[in-house]
């Protein structure tokens, strides 16, 4: 198929960016979205132009590197799917596709479609851990049974890939879904209980320091989240936060 791509190009953090239009031919439905970008880039390189830079690594929907705003939707039109797992069969011959980076004050653009998401790391550093030494002198793993339903739920919260689509989808650029997923994982497990108070307070504080917006419960984050992280996590974090501040 033949496509028209409108892509955000920005030479560096301080540079002014703009949308640039590229026609692209020879796209096959079996290609992933990023393989389509590879073809464009190969063409650009062969012409001696700079290719479009974008973050990606696993191309399996698990590392959370890829992050494209496709036709105004984080990760494109397919639900529960990262950009790298989106396939071109979801598009039609002759389509025009706009591709932009995540837009949020806490995610400044580095180059083209690449943004700086280190704010996410700092939220995690503020408290997303259990303070247990890695000495190997812990107790036997089966000494604390955990109800399967709870363990499964904790696991589900823990499957957040840290991509940032929730922030990109939110009109307030709030990081609540991301932060609450981690808080929830620990809140649901006995191992997380002991430090629950400090954890939620510190992580929420860091979220504010980084300049993420407030949550106004629009739910856009959950709709665009490629891993289906649920809004319940936000509710759980709110109640953890309340508990911590009483």
């Amino acid at each position: 198929m033949k496509l028209t791509l409108k892509i955000w190009r920005q030479a560096g953090p301080e540079a002014k960016g703009k949308m640039v239009t590229y026609p692209l031919d020879g796209v096959d439905g079996d290609m992933s979205f990023l393989e389509m970008m590879d073809i464009l880039n190969e063409e650009l390189v062969n012409k001696g132009e700079e290719p479009v830079e974008f973050d990606h690594d696993c191309r399996e929907g698990i590392c959370g590197s890829c992050n494209m705003m496709i036709n105004g939707q984080p990760h494109g039109p397919q639900k529960l799917t990262t950009t790298c797992q989106l396939h071109m069969r979801k598009f039609n011959d002759g389509d025009t596709i706009t591709i932009e980076p995540w837009r949020a004050a806490a995610f400044p653009v580095i180059k083209d479609l690449i943004v700086d998401r280190s704010s996410f790391d700092r939220i995690q550093q503020a408290g997303a851990y259990v303070s247990v030494n890695t000495s190997g002198n812990t107790q036997d793993a089966n000494s604390i049974p955990i109800e399967k339903a709870k363990a499964d739920e904790a696991f589900h919260s823990a499957t957040c890939i840290g991509c940032g689509a929730c922030v990109a989808a939110c009109k307030n650029a709030s990081a609540m879904l991301f932060t609450s997923a981690k808080v929830s994982q620990y809140a649901l497990l006995p191992q997380g209980e002991i430090e629950a108070t400090d954890r939620v307070q510190n992580m929420v504080r860091q979220m504010d320091i980084e300049g993420f917006g407030n949550c106004t419960n629009t739910g856009a984050c959950m709709i665009e989240c490629p891993k289906g992280i649920k809004l319940e996590n936000i509710a759980r974090m709110n109640s953890e936060y309340l508990k911590a501040n009483i």
Binding site: A141, E147, A151, Q185, Y186
Partner: peptide, 18 residues
Amino acid sequence: DQCVAQGVPFAREYGGLL
């Protein structure tokens, strides 16, 4: 043991064990 202590959510059986 270490991973469970860190809160790694491994799959469990209905009885609550790994």
